[in-house]
Amino acid sequence: MMTTSSTSPLPKTLHRCLATLLILSLLSACSVFKLKPVRPWDRDILAKPEMQLDADVMEAEMDEKIYYSKEASRGGAGVGGGGCGCN
């Protein structure tokens, strides 16, 4: 008989339900709440380099490669990546 090992603090189904619920809640948050528009003259903070989605792009790219080669998950922040026979 071949045995495989697996361990998780919660059953997988419960994990999946909780995570799906979380994602759906977050997604609906934006559409449910009426958001007050931020006018162009109020965008000084949002325009700062450190507030951009691609701030620290080199660090993010290096991290993505490290964790892609050391863990079994991939994707999330963008498409592509990988492209290596990482050990």
């Binding site: 994602i23 948050a29 934006c30 958001l35 931020v38 109020d42 507030m51 989605l53 922040a77 963008g78």
Partner: peptide, 26 residues
């Protein structure tokens, strides 16, 4: 062959906060 598909949204919540969501199919 590896194919990735992505759909995402970024929402400005107020003048200090951004929220981003992405779904990726690999």
């Amino acid at each position: 062959v590896v194919v990735d598909l992505i759909a995402g949204m970024t929402q400005v919540l107020n003048r200090k906060t951004l929220l981003q969501f992405n779904y990726t199919l690999g």
